[in-house]
Every structure is written in C-alpha cells, then in structure tokens.
C-alpha cells in the first residue's frame, strides 16, 4: 500500500476528529449565546473575551468533577453507555465528502475518508446505533426516570428512523446512487436536491430533530419531567460525553442534510471560482461553503430549541406514525410517477 495514502487518510481523520470535537465544543458556546440573544440576555462572557474560552472552562470542570457510579448500577454497562454514544457520534463523519478532489502537485487527494458505495446506509447504521448509548446508559443507571427516558429514546428513534428512511428512498429515486460522493457530485452548481425533494427534505429535517433528541423532540432528557433523563445519574466526563455526543450528532445531522439536499460543497458559480483559483484552493473554498451551510443548520437547530415548546410522548408518536410516514410514502409515489413520466415521454 502506498505510504502516502496512509498518511493522507491519517491526517484527514485526525483533522475530522478534531473538527468534530471543536465544533461540538463551540456548539455548546453558540447554543448559550444564541439562547441569550433570543432571551434578551448576555450569555457567557466571563472566560476570555466574549466568553470565548467558556467551552474550555466547561471541559476542565467536567474532567475535575468527582466521578460517581451509583451503587446499584450495572458498572460495566454504565461505563459503556457514554462511550458508545460518543463513538457512534464520531464515526458518522467518515463517509461525508468534504470537498472536491484536491490537487497538490501531481497528487489527487479526495477530501473524504472513504467513499463506500453504500455510504448512505452506513450513516443510517451509525445513527441507529447511536440510540444504544442512550438506552444502555439509561438502563444501567438503575433509576426509574432514566429508564423511562431510555424507553422514550428507543421508541422515538426507531419510529423516526422509518420516516427518515422513507424520505431518503425518494431521494434515491432521484439520484440513483447510495454513494454520498456521487449524490453530492450530481448537485453541481445550484442543481441541489432540495429543488426536487422539498417535502422529502422537510420530513428528513423533522426526523433529524427527533434523532438527535433536540427540542421540540427532546423528550428523553425532558428536564421538567425526567430531570435530564438517561444522563441523570452521570457525572464528570461521562456526562460530558453524553452532552458532547448530542452536539456531535447535531453536527453530523446538519452535515448530512447539507450534503443530501443542499449540495454539500457545491455552490453557484463554482466553475468560475475553480477556473480562477486552480484545483488546490477551489476545493477548499467549497469546503468552506459546506461548513457555512452546516453552521446555518446548527443555528436553525438552536433557534427552534429556544422558540417552541416540546411535544408530549403520544403526540410525538402520532406525528411520526400518522403524519410523517404517510407523507413520506406519498412523496415516494409522487416522485416515482414523475420520474417514470419524464423518462418515458
């Protein structure tokens, strides 16, 4: 094997990992600042200028806190839970194409860790696994509130995965591929999938909110009823892992939405930029655009959280099973008919 290949991938993975963690860290800061902005407050402003060091302070605090494992908890699973949540959150970014192939000298470097031909399925698999962290943590805590929360999380994620999967099927009909790289390539310029699949995107986005346990679907950690739910008994960095995993999941969901429906690194006028800047810098600019889209989605997540109330458990299920799934199926049928008509006539 080419040693350069190994180095390339190693560097890419390291950067990705660092970026995921950095974005998760600063998402916590951004969340507090956005909340403060929406609520007429200042938000964190003590640590460093504009409170910019607040995430570091929080991180140090998390590490220094005493670690408490409840006496009656299942110790092994209690420790596995947050680890699993974090692991599943971090490996999701592996199949995301971050930019067009970059050319340095005569070497072509793909800005993607791996382009597996079922990339979309991989992402779904990883997201589905994510709920195990919550379930195991909630169950192992041996606390009734945590258990209720774990049950809520499990049923919520399973229900919304179905609608999410169905909304993706319509997208697959349009794109004819499961490879994320290909799907993104097809959306060259301004030819974004969103224009073909607006309803699909809406369903996907609602499900993404539910999958990441964000408001208005944050029932598993509903602070008014379940006092934090599955991570109620956790302390120290184990708690930090759960909170971090949530923000990384939010980042991954935003990334997937941006890549599938909003063209990923594609933007109008990209050919002109590529011609002007050359094949080394233009892809990086595409990556920059991609991140802008991701940040816009992350902001949207926060905006929603601080604006609307949360659903009740049965209303959540009703929305998932009685509204989103029929809509997604209708979307598949309409998409199929339109494609069949445009191909044959």
């Amino acid at each position: 094997m080419d040693i350069n290949f190994v180095i390339e991938k190693f560097v890419l993975i390291t950067i990705l990992f660092a970026i995921s963690l950095l974005i998760a860290m600063y998402s916590t800061y951004a969340e507090r600042k956005v909340a403060a902005f929406l609520q007429d407050r200042l938000g964190p402003d003590r640590a460093g200028p504009f409170g910019i060091l607040q995430p570091l302070a929080d991180g140090v605090k998390m590490f220094m806190k005493e670690e408490i494992i409840p006496a009656n908890a299942n110790k092994w699973l209690f420790m596995v839970g947050p680890g699993l949540a974090m692991l599943c959150a971090c490996i999701g970014t592996a199949v995301i194409p971050w930019g067009q192939d970059m050319v340095i000298g005569d070497r072509v470097i793909p800005l993607q860790v791996t382009d597996i031909n079922v990339g979309l399925l991989y992402i779904f698999g990883v997201i589905s696994l994510g709920v195990y962290g919550v379930m195991i943590g909630g169950w192992a805590s041996n606390n009734k509130y945590s258990l209720l929360s774990a049950i809520r999380a499990a049923s919520q994620n399973i229900s919304y995965e179905i609608a999410m999967g169905l909304s993706i099927i319509a997208l697959l009909l349009v794109s004819n591929s499961l490879s994320l790289k290909e799907i993104v390539e097809q959306q060259h310029g301004f030819n974004w999938n969103f224009w073909y699949q607006p309803l699909g995107f809406l369903i996907f986005m609602v499900c993404a909110f539910a999958e990441t346990n964000r408001a208005p679907f944050d029932l598993p950690e509903c602070e008014a009823e379940l006092n934090g739910g599955y991570h109620m008994e956790y302390s120290s960095m184990k708690l930090g892992f759960y909170l971090f995993a949530e923000y990384i999941n939010m980042f991954v969901s935003s990334t997937v939405m941006a890549a599938l429906y909003f063209g990923g690194y594609n933007y109008p006028g990209m050919d002109y930029i590529a011609a002007q800047w050359g094949p080394t810098w233009a892809p990086l600019f595409g990556t920059f655009i991609f991140f802008m889209k991701i940040f816009a989605f992350i902001f949207f997540f926060m905006w929603v959280r601080w604006t609307i109330p949360r659903f009740r458990y049965d209303q959540l299920m009703n929305l998932g099973w009685k509204t989103l799934i029929p809509l997604a199926i209708a979307n598949i049928i309409v998409t199929g008919i339109v494609i069949a008509l445009t191909n044959n006539f």
Binding site: A35, Q39, R41, P216, C222, A224, W306, T307, I308
Partner: peptide
C-alpha cells in the same frame, strides 16, 4: 414545563 424556556424568561 412544556419546554418553552424563552417565553418563560420574557
């Protein structure tokens, strides 16, 4: 308690 923290603070 329904989760609308912002309205609470307003």
């Amino acid at each position: 308690d329904t989760g609308a923290t912002t309205t609470f603070l307003y």
